[in-house]
Write a protein that binds this DNA or RNA. Sequence first.
DNA 1: CCGGCGCGTAAAGAACGCGTCAAAGTCGCC
DNA 2: GGCGACTTTGACGCGTTCTTTACGCGCCGG
Lengths: 225, 225
Amino acid sequence: MTRVLAVDDDPSLRRALAINLRARQYEVDLAEDGASALAAAARRPPDVVVLDLGLPDMDGSDVIRGLRGWTQVPIVVLSARAGQGDKVDALDAGADDYVTKPFGMDELLARLRAAVRRGIAGEEAPVVDTASFTVDLAAKEVRTASGEHVRLTPTEWHLLEVLTRNEGKLVPQRQLLQEVWGPQYETETNYLRVYMAQLRRKLEQNPAQPRHLITEPGMGYRLVR
Amino acid sequence: MTRVLAVDDDPSLRRALAINLRARQYEVDLAEDGASALAAAARRPPDVVVLDLGLPDMDGSDVIRGLRGWTQVPIVVLSARAGQGDKVDALDAGADDYVTKPFGMDELLARLRAAVRRGIAGEEAPVVDTASFTVDLAAKEVRTASGEHVRLTPTEWHLLEVLTRNEGKLVPQRQLLQEVWGPQYETETNYLRVYMAQLRRKLEQNPAQPRHLITEPGMGYRLVR
DNA sequence: CCGGCGCGTAAAGAACGCGTCAAAGTCGCC
DNA sequence: GGCGACTTTGACGCGTTCTTTACGCGCCGG
């Protein structure tokens, strides 16, 4: 059963959330402020968190950072209709989605389902294998189709790791550069060219015509099975 | 139940709208001018707004901006005047779609359904598929109906992305140019013609008679399923 | 009936991005 | 201190993409 931790200082909204969620077979924990939310999450790790930003004791973004310190649980934020500043802050702090008050219960439930789906999908998939090679993210290991171990340098691995975690998706050049080399290298696209070439030489059967490490000109790269 | 706010100064048209909409299980609020429309929307937030541009007290675009200040509710505009200027203004101000008077009730209802669907779907719509092709916004990938990958250039993709995010809705030329090429290219409508032609060649089964990438002469383009 | 406007199409040169190679620079380890 | 592995940097050729211009057509208004 899916466990939801719902955090809001308004008792009537807490009650409404609890009733609606339990009616849909969620297991519900409640908290009325940031401190007890963090405590509750630590005591019984939830599968998804619904968090009101307007808590009496702590800033919402700080609650998010407190959770993100040790868990990747999906967080859906509730906010009164005020400015967008706190929304941006919350997303930057690591929230997954955002619902503005007043909201329809249907909408919140839809967002919750989506968040849970993403969360569960995220935990599995440490291994991705293609026709030519297999990437084991947990073991940090790459093997060819014939089972031989492939030696990668740290940078090569890091690049391949980002592509693997986004398997099938196009990863923008900027994101790759930022995650592998850091934010100040966002424009050094030639790094990508050099290292993609090295990865292809080690992993592709025909490096000149790559089948899995695909260039999308002008946009980024993509790992396809 | 879906709530519609219908705004028109003509009492007989208000009545006709109310009867037709209620017959189709919509909950209907009525307003006869801009000020009371804004007040009604604030009192009971609607799921979709039908707005006549020819109101006695306010310019239609100002009503739209008044709503857009705090809500993303879909707005379908009714326009009587032959001129296109006010329609373009309304779309630029944030309207979602428009219907020209005199209109068939069927057409209005179809536009309403499309607008409501978009509104509810909200931010969760990473995949849009038509009879001819499928657009995956998250993966930045386009496939034909037969499943083949379609290669798009960055500009082609960017243009298609904007249209896809506004699926079903008429997107003004100005908005497309601004989002794809930047604010200083707002008048270069020939860019749109060139790139729409390229997209049609790659995506439409019969590029000469596009079924999904539709031109709305003088105003903009629309992606329909 | 004619003229103008907007749209679709085609084609050209210019600009850009990518893959490749080679060499210089950096770091840690023996 | 020297050696090897890894990373960074620069240059070049080639194919692709973007930009710009020109022309023909259809529709609408005069």
